[in-house]
Design a protein around this nucleic acid. Sequence first.
DNA 1: CGTATCCAATACATGAATGTATCGAATACA
DNA 2: TGTATTCGATACATTCATGTATTGGATACG
Lengths: 221, 221
Amino acid sequence: MSSLVEQLEAPGETTRRRKTRDRLIDAAYEVFAETGIHAASVEMITERAGFTRGAFYSNFDSKEELFFALAERENRVRFERLQQGVDSILPGLDAATAVTDATLGTLVMRFLELQGDDRRWCLVQSEFRLLAMRDSAVAASYLEYQRNFQNELAARLDDALRSVGLTFVIDPVAVTRMIVTVYESAMQESILEGDTVPNMARSPIVLGTLPPLIQSLTRPL
Amino acid sequence: MSSLVEQLEAPGETTRRRKTRDRLIDAAYEVFAETGIHAASVEMITERAGFTRGAFYSNFDSKEELFFALAERENRVRFERLQQGVDSILPGLDAATAVTDATLGTLVMRFLELQGDDRRWCLVQSEFRLLAMRDSAVAASYLEYQRNFQNELAARLDDALRSVGLTFVIDPVAVTRMIVTVYESAMQESILEGDTVPNMARSPIVLGTLPPLIQSLTRPL
DNA sequence: CGTATCCAATACATGAATGTATCGAATACA
DNA sequence: TGTATTCGATACATTCATGTATTGGATACG
């Protein structure tokens, strides 16, 4: 909506205020990822940001508001990254490219990596989803983000496939959802296994199952 | 392990104690699902169970211990249900059965429903996973449950497929993991969309993507 | 350079959850 | 039935996070 405008030039928002808000959100990102929303106290966050609680109560009404500000910022970043990143993926491909499992796999992986294989984001998003499952208002905004992203990704994947002379045999959005789902669960599993920096490019579940999956759900145009 | 033995006859555990433990775990199941582990206070749980906090501190050392007791009980129940439920699925099938998308789909669905399409379990398990992602000790037990279940399910699915003259084109365990992943995320989405009683049999993401997925990942023996 | 405004720091009051120590009732057992 | 033991209820002390009201310093602006 007008969040971009707000970002660049807010009505009565001084640059000082914006800076502390950003630092608070940065700190919240770390602390929420480490301990979870509920276990995180306002003081942990402000301390991490180098403030006292006064700064928080001057900028936010509640921990939840801060959490949603964080979620919105990160969702926006990833959505924009997806829109822009496409330009760096598509140009290298054309109908002459050999369409093997490998190229299909790397094609999809490039898109997924735009989402960022970020341990912290995975944790925060899992918590966002959990909150959403318990609160229909939160669910509405979660689903909106999710669908925005998946629709965009589906369109991009479809474009990319067509540019190499392929198409999905079922609804592109359905396939995309499945891909995103598998990717996310692979990220979670990577974290569960103790990887501090998840490396999706080497994840057996992603490499082992996504390429045959994609392969089997596409056909020549 | 010996949990079954413990269940039937514990060393110095009176039946009274066992009953209150069970009631506490039942109550915790509800409260944890409704509010989450951290938001749930000990008093909420004991009140729901018809006790005071005294009963809790007499039976458990911490909320976490209660949570893990709950998780273990439910995981065990589902594992046993899977082992036993197979008998009710396989007999109806043989190589003469027409192998259509529909039969494959319902075959898989029957197995998945053994896992139980339970809103509460979905929420509690999501939280278990989240705890596990932040604590390697919890991760170990989460992964153990998960792998036990998936290996068992993979073996059963493989059996079932063979009984109708099919086989997986890639590692059965990998396929199973993907199926479980998609199923779980469908359940989550169902909850996000406000279904109080998730009906997986009608979920578009499950019905729309799993059958073609299974179809494309199997071949005649 | 002086003044007004804004914003974060500080101090304080409040409420809530925890854990423990003790008490009383229910159960087991002789 | 009487007694011992177990287990849950009660009461208390403590800790911790929250939110607000006020203060002091930084920044913008004339």
